[in-house]
Design a protein around this nucleic acid. Structure first.
Lengths: 243, 243
DNA sequence: AGTTTTTATTTGTCTGACATTTAAAAGTCT
DNA sequence: AGACTTTTAAATGTCAGACAAATAAAAACT
């Protein structure tokens, strides 16, 4: 019978895992309809609230969707890149904020990954993506822009760079790395001078991408990484020695 | 407090979002205790089962943990890298299997990201990580190894390479890209000849990492990517023209 | 003081019910 | 027959109340 269950987890967690396994293994395919809550209660020998808790767990991961009414029920959801993006961003953001990840570590990861996209972006970037980048550079040059808006624009710029690789898997993986940095970047106060420097580098990147010059993009990204880390360093030091 | 009902979503989803926002915004910090289910029912003016469904949604994302008994309750969870890994892997795997992502696209993303780690790994890899890689290479050379076991060993090898960068953020981001490839790799039948080729390249990578020779690691990874894509290509063609 | 017992609190689960949504079946009129 | 309306059945969403089980703190008892 029950051969020593390692950890007596909640029933709802067990059931959720069983269904999750069925989905991952392909036993339940996309758009397949799960048995009704009443049927699942029977199958798993638990009450309907317990089944519902299990289903909500899966819904939270976008693995299923539910529909009311006759011929309604729970259906295996096609996990979209969009859904995965937002989960990835939420998870990455919390991961950084909760684990005291240093600015340098996060920054290193982000730029390493971004540089991985650069050669592909140089090859494939569309006119649309270039236009987005130019628009963001322009926005960044507007005086009176708050630091937060500047950071948000920075994220949009870099996402356009990443999307330029025209590889949805890369875009998905990078979404977390790029967006999760934003809260960390928001700690920095950008002077007019430092904004100017960043805009110069952004322009260099956009120009190089337009010219399909992968090497210049790479070197500009390296410079940008160093400059960003320097800025963060200055913030730390100015806090230690408040002028 | 009272979140305006944006769109007619489930109450449990609304409540989950409200709490999630409180966590992400820092209003609820790590290890903070949420109000009891009864209190939440009062605050949100819903029944306890509905509150519970909301909490299970959050538990599914590892945002909270629950404890029974007096002075128990739901606590904000410190999202660990480990938790995030496994979620990342599950999501990435499903994303690839459900969206008809081509082998080439996934492969390109994976090797682009892995190459981003290579220079850092060459600098920082520990003796332990090198040993892991050597051990996996040895395992891969064992005759009688199933294709699945070969792939699993391949994943372990590459994860050691990624971990060599000694950057937890990178390891986390890469976990999805590397592991999610495994089901796709499993479609390939590895001949003795192709295994030999892969092992040669793995050895080249391990040697170069030991010698801290980033450039050779990079070129070996490029070769490995090309070879892997060639193998996949052959599988496709042999299916079109069954011998 | 140290140990045991009690108690209160909180989550986990169950039963049963009603509300709401929705598609299909049944009915009605032209 | 065909188009429209009404009814019905099935399913999820929500609620109320209850009991079980775990657990820590308080109380009682050596």
């Amino acid at each position: 019978m029950k051969a020593a269950p390692r950890k007596t987890a909640d029933l709802s967690a067990q059931i959720a895992q069983a269904i999750r396994d069925a989905i991952v293994s392909g036993e339940l395919i996309v758009d397949a309809r799960l048995p009704s809550e009443a049927e699942l209660s029977d199958q798993f020998q638990v009450s309907r609230p317990t089944v519902r808790e299990a289903l909500k767990r899966l819904a939270a991961q976008s693995l299923i969707r539910t529909q009311r009414g006759a011929s309604g029920g729970a259906f295996v959801n096609r996990l979209s890149f969009e859904d995965a993006y937002s989960q990835q961003v939420t998870t990455s953001t919390l991961l950084l904020s909760m684990n005291a990840v240093s600015f340098d570590t996060a920054c290193e990861a982000r730029y390493a990954l971004e540089r991985a996209c650069a050669p592909l972006s140089a090859q494939r970037r569309t006119a649309d993506q270039l236009a987005t980048m130019r628009a963001e550079i322009f926005r960044q040059s507007q005086p009176g822009l708050t630091d937060e808006a500047f950071c948000a624009s920075d994220v949009t710029f870099h996402r356009a760079l990443v999307d330029g690789a025209e590889n949805p898997v890369l875009s998905y993986q990078l979404a977390g790395a790029v967006e999760a940095m934003q809260p960390l970047m928001n700690m920095i106060t950008f002077t007019a001078r430092s904004r100017e420097e960043i805009i110069t580098l952004h322009t260099r990147i956009a120009d190089a991408l337009e010219a399909q010059d992968a090497e210049t993009v790479d070197s500009a990204l390296i410079d940008l990484e160093h400059y960003t880390r320097q800025l963060a360093q200055d913030v730390v030091e100015s806090k230690r020695k408040p002028a």
